[in-house]
Structures are given as C-alpha cells and as structure tokens.
Nucleic acid binder design. Structure first.
Lengths: 193, 193
DNA sequence: TTTATTTCTTGTCCTAGTTCAATGCATGCG
DNA sequence: CGCATGCATTGAACTAGGACAAGAAATAAA
C-alpha cells in the first residue's frame, strides 16, 4: 500500500526502512468521490495530497469570473496550495477538485513538522520536490509566453499523453490559457493534416 | 558586510551567531561590471547568487529568437538557474546577465552541501526560499494568462516601483510578455488619463 | 428508452496585441 | 565636438485568438 508513495519520496534522497515507517505512520489514507472539493477559495490549505489513484484539478477564478486551471494532478503527483497558504498563513485563492474517484495520502503541516524533527533527511526530499515544482511552473510560464496555442496543445499531448482521454476538453483549454472553442478549432485543423 | 544576507536568510528561520558564521564562511563575495554574462545557455549553473547591490536579468531565447525575461533580481534577491540545472545536471536554457555594476555573494552547490551537513537548519531556510519562488512564479503565470497587457504593466509598476526607472523599457515589455511597441502605446494611453 | 445536461463543433464578427516601417531622442565614444 | 548605436514613440496594416450564438453529440440520469 505504501510502496507507491515511498518510491516517490525516495526518488532523489534515499531512506532506510525505519525512516519510511515514520513517514508512513504520519500519512492519512483517504478515498474521495468524483467532483468533490478538497479546497475552496478562502480556506486555508492544511494538507499536501499525494494522488494514489485518480485525477484532480487545481484552479482559480480570475477577475472576470473565468476558471483557469493551474495543475492537473494524476497518479504519483502531489497537489496542494502549499506555496501560498501553509507558510504564509493567508487564505488560499485556489480551488482543488477531484475529477475522478480518487485515493490520496494526505499529509498535514503538523505531521510534516513532526516528520522533519524525527527524520530530518525528509526536509531535503521535500525541498527537491519543491524545486521540481518550480521547474515545471517556470517551464509552463515559458510556454505560455512564447508559444502559439497550437504549439502549446501539441506539447501538452506529448507531455500528458493519457490526460486528454481522461478529462474534458474545455479543462485542457483552460489549462492552456485558451478558449474551449479555439481549442476545438485547433483540433480539427490538426486532424486534417 | 554580511548583515544584509544574514537578515535575508533569517527571514523565516532563525539562526544563532555560530550558524551564521558557518554560512558566511562559505560565501564568495564578487564584484561584477555591467553587461556581464554570469550564465550562458548550455552552461551548467554552478551558483546561487545573492544580489547585494545592482540588478540582473535572467532570460531565455525562444524558438523564434526572441528574448523572454524570466526574472529581474535586485538588492536582496537570489538568482540562479537552480530549478533546472543543479540537481538535474542538465545544461541550462537560460542566460543571466548583469544590467548594472553588481556586488554578489556567490554560493556554490558544494558549499551548500557543506552548509547543510554542518548546520542542517539551513535546509529548511532554503526550502522556504524555494517555496516563495514557486509562489512568485505561480502568481506570474496567473497574471500572464488572465490579465490584459495594461493590467500586467500597472501591476508591475506597483510590485517593482523602482525597477521601471532602472531598466530599459523593452526589458520590461519582455518580462511582461508583450512587444516593446505595444508597451509604449500603453504608456502613452495611461499618461493621457 | 427517453429526457436532460454537459460537452464539442462550427461559423461570423470583433479586438488586443503584433509586425514592420519611419522618425525623433539619448547616450555613449573616438 | 560629431557620429553611431541603441532606445522610445507613432502609425498603418495584419493576425491570433476571443465572444457570442446555435446546433450536434455524447453522457448521465431517470
């Protein structure tokens, strides 16, 4: 049951059996049905969730009332609004919603503190995870600024090959920062080649 | 001399005098003239630089040969291509260039390792710095997707009030992801209000 | 199976922002 | 000092992508 998350956390730092057991004892396993909100705007985000199974989206609503998707998280990904909420202690601007029936390991800030004091090596692992999120976000910023909608879509397909079968098209449009209608036009154009 | 950087690193985690001395002993002070490249595309980035004085830009060149500025770093900011380069061991895609005569504290990956093994508390401080960078980048992504060019510019002025006096306008345009000409038009429009 | 709701497609018109000049302004630099 | 190179402004023509509307398809629900 824990092998999946243990493999994930050991990707850049290795841990012995005892350390992993401490880690595992601090996680809470949770099953959540489709279309459930894990976090609402204005809440404080008090978890980091590791996706064992399923798919969620993290999004905010802009000044014109448009949803913009910041992240899809599927199996083996972490999702949270850690960057804003946990350390800054500000209410979150984002929503996190399951798109499929999901299984998570939930990790609370308190458990995280406890983990770091009992097994400080984990501090490093989480720093590196953070670094990787930064790299991914920076890459997305890069793409958003300097690629056309078609290029962004093709790159999305390459990068998340399974996702286009799993989630509705208008969510993908929202993730790419384009309108659903325009994505549809792009797709027909591509199909004709 | 070290008080500035010590204040910065102590912002979210507090350190005693001895810890700060270890930290300081691992830094290399460096003076760099204007218009100098600290990092070129294809290099491995082997530093994190803390800006004591001056201003640098970090940018990449997109597929059409356009420069896109990812970050301006001024006094008290850190700049590096850490997210891609150091842990992934991939050559960097970005350039880092001084825009003014600068003073830095340079911090190498080796020194960082040494610091973490001698004073593990620093691991946490750097994790939080990383987290803040992620928050800033996520915020920029948000703005890039869902605001108009005018809104982005006004927000930029608010957020970096001194920068518009210090750097050329076309750099700001590049940071905002718009053309230099269009920024000029926005400015005249704003001035007329 | 029928109905209802959500998703996807297609067309027309519209706008924010680009591209490509041309011109005037600064700021170096010999 | 004069010249050159880079920087900002302005205008005209163009385009990627958006907004709106209406219909087709698919999925869910009953």
């Amino acid at each position: 049951m824990y092998s999946q998350i243990n493999k994930n956390i050991s990707r850049y730092v290795s841990f012995d059996q005892q350390e992993l057991e401490i880690f595992n004892s601090l996680l809470e396993f949770k099953t959540v049905p489709k279309k459930t909100m894990l976090l609402q705007e204005g809440d404080r985000c008090n978890f980091e969730a590791f996706v064992v199974k399923g798919c969620v989206r993290k999004y905010y609503i802009d000044d014109n009332g448009f949803e913009v998707i910041l992240q899809f998280a599927i199996e083996n990904a972490w999702v949270s609004d850690i960057s804003f909420s946990i350390y800054e202690d500000k209410p979150s601007r984002v929503f996190i919603e399951t798109l499929e029936d999901c299984e998570f390991f939930m990790f609370s800030p308190e458990s995280k503190e406890e983990l770091f004091s009992n097994a400080p090596q984990f501090e490093r692992a989480f720093r590196i995870l953070m670094q990787r999120s930064l790299a991914v976000t920076q890459d997305r910023l890069f793409n958003t600024i300097s690629k056309t909608a078609t290029e962004k879509y093709l790159e999305f397909l390459e990068h998340y090959p399974t996702l286009s079968q799993r989630v509705a098209q208008h969510y993908i449009a929202s993730y790419l920062g384009i309108s659903a209608e325009f994505l549809s036009k792009i797709r027909t154009k591509i199909a004709k080649l």
